[in-house]
Simulated scan of single mutants.
Amino acid sequence: MAEVVVVVFDFDRTLIDGDSDNWVVTEMGLTHLFRELRSTMPWTSLMNRMMVELHSQGMSVEDIEDCLKRMPLHPRVIESIRAAHRHGCDLRIISDANQFFIETILKHHGLLGCFSEIVTNPAFVNVEGRLNIVPFHDSASSPHGCNLCPPNMCKGLVLKRIQAADSEFKERRLIYLGDGKGDYCPCLRLGMRDFVVPRKSFPLWNLIFSDQTLIKAVIHEWSNGEELAGVLLDIIDRILMDENTRTGLIASPDSGCKTTQVSYP
């Protein structure tokens, strides 16, 4: 029954506690240059410039991988992702980080195979062995036109595409977990049967509670990895219990998301 549950994660400061871009910048000694250039170019272009700098210093893609593998991931978050995947939930990531950083971290923790889709800024290694990071949206040739989102990615359009592509979406329940301003646009697209899970006192949480009437979804806040994991699994259990009741199944009391058939006279 868990195929009725679609879980969409932001990545930085949500699935991982910190920011993968800042982690690489700090750990690989780029803080001074990053701050010097911060006001001169968009964030994604700036991160690509940092990759140019690392390459010029003789740093390899493997060095960047090793740096990313040292980034901590809360053990309860790892457990909750694996549990949700075991129960058949459709897990996805929509992130303004980049493909290389996200996949490296997830693969290191054995989680990459849990996700059906990762939508983020593309990254690739060129013939010179340098990592390139490019924007998801090309703001010059095909601007997305959303004034709520940064020029390189409108997460609301990504979520709209996910909804439109699923012919049975009306039967599915969506859980969106995020923290930043860029997560607000997709949350406005959630329906009354969906859930939004914002990180407390972060920009998404502030935007939601500045006018809560704009959000149709049920809101559950969280503050750290322990709370995120607990809230996520509680919501999944709640959705499955609702679905079990609707379809004539009840949850086995000792199994969380497992179900047993109800016999009617």
Score class of each variant (00 low, 15 high):
residue 7 V to G: 06
residue 10 D to I: 10
residue 12 D to I: 11
residue 14 T to A: 13
residue 15 L to Y: 01
residue 18 G to M: 06
residue 22 N to S: 10
residue 22 N to H: 02
residue 23 W to A: 03
residue 28 M to H: 04
residue 29 G to R: 06
residue 29 G to H: 03
residue 31 T to K: 12
residue 31 T to S: 14
residue 33 L to G: 03
residue 34 F to N: 13
residue 34 F to W: 13
residue 34 F to M: 03
residue 35 R to G: 14
residue 35 R to A: 09
residue 41 M to Y: 02
residue 49 R to E: 02
residue 49 R to M: 01
residue 49 R to F: 01
residue 53 E to H: 01
residue 55 H to N: 08
residue 56 S to G: 07
residue 57 Q to L: 06
residue 59 M to R: 14
residue 60 S to H: 02
residue 61 V to A: 03
residue 63 D to M: 12
residue 68 L to K: 05
residue 68 L to F: 06
residue 68 L to V: 09
residue 68 L to D: 12
residue 69 K to N: 09
residue 73 L to D: 08
residue 75 P to R: 04
residue 76 R to M: 14
residue 78 I to D: 07
residue 78 I to S: 00
residue 82 R to K: 14
residue 83 A to N: 02
residue 87 H to C: 13
residue 87 H to V: 11
residue 87 H to A: 14
residue 87 H to Q: 09
residue 91 L to Y: 04
residue 93 I to D: 10
residue 94 I to Y: 09
residue 98 N to L: 06
residue 100 F to L: 02
residue 102 I to K: 03
residue 103 E to D: 13
residue 106 L to T: 03
residue 106 L to I: 11
residue 106 L to V: 05
residue 111 L to S: 05
residue 112 L to V: 03
residue 115 F to M: 12
residue 115 F to W: 05
residue 116 S to D: 12
residue 121 N to F: 02
residue 122 P to W: 06
residue 122 P to T: 04
residue 124 F to D: 02
residue 130 R to W: 00
residue 131 L to S: 01
residue 134 V to H: 01
residue 135 P to Y: 02
residue 136 F to W: 10
residue 141 S to I: 15
residue 143 P to V: 09
residue 143 P to A: 10
residue 144 H to G: 11
residue 145 G to N: 05
residue 146 C to G: 09
residue 146 C to Y: 11
residue 147 N to L: 12
residue 149 C to T: 07
residue 150 P to F: 06
residue 151 P to A: 10
residue 154 C to L: 10
residue 157 L to R: 12
residue 157 L to T: 06
residue 158 V to M: 06
residue 158 V to I: 15
residue 160 K to F: 04
residue 161 R to C: 08
residue 163 Q to L: 15
residue 165 A to W: 00
residue 167 S to H: 04
residue 167 S to D: 14
residue 172 R to A: 11
residue 175 I to R: 01
residue 176 Y to D: 12
residue 178 G to E: 14
residue 181 K to N: 13
residue 181 K to I: 14
residue 181 K to A: 15
residue 186 P to V: 06
residue 189 R to L: 15
residue 190 L to V: 02
residue 190 L to G: 10
residue 191 G to C: 04
residue 192 M to I: 15
residue 192 M to R: 14
residue 194 D to N: 12
residue 195 F to T: 05
residue 197 V to Q: 08
residue 199 R to F: 11
residue 200 K to F: 08
residue 201 S to V: 12
residue 201 S to W: 04
residue 203 P to C: 10
residue 203 P to N: 07
residue 205 W to H: 15
residue 205 W to A: 04
residue 208 I to F: 04
residue 210 S to I: 06
residue 213 T to P: 00
residue 214 L to I: 07
residue 215 I to T: 10
residue 216 K to C: 07
residue 217 A to I: 09
residue 220 H to W: 09
residue 223 S to P: 00
residue 223 S to Y: 00
residue 227 E to L: 03
residue 230 G to V: 07
residue 231 V to A: 01
residue 232 L to D: 10
residue 234 D to V: 00
residue 234 D to G: 06
residue 239 I to H: 01
residue 239 I to W: 07
residue 247 T to A: 10
residue 247 T to D: 09
residue 249 L to I: 04
residue 253 P to R: 08
residue 254 D to H: 09
residue 254 D to I: 09
residue 258 K to D: 15
residue 261 Q to H: 05
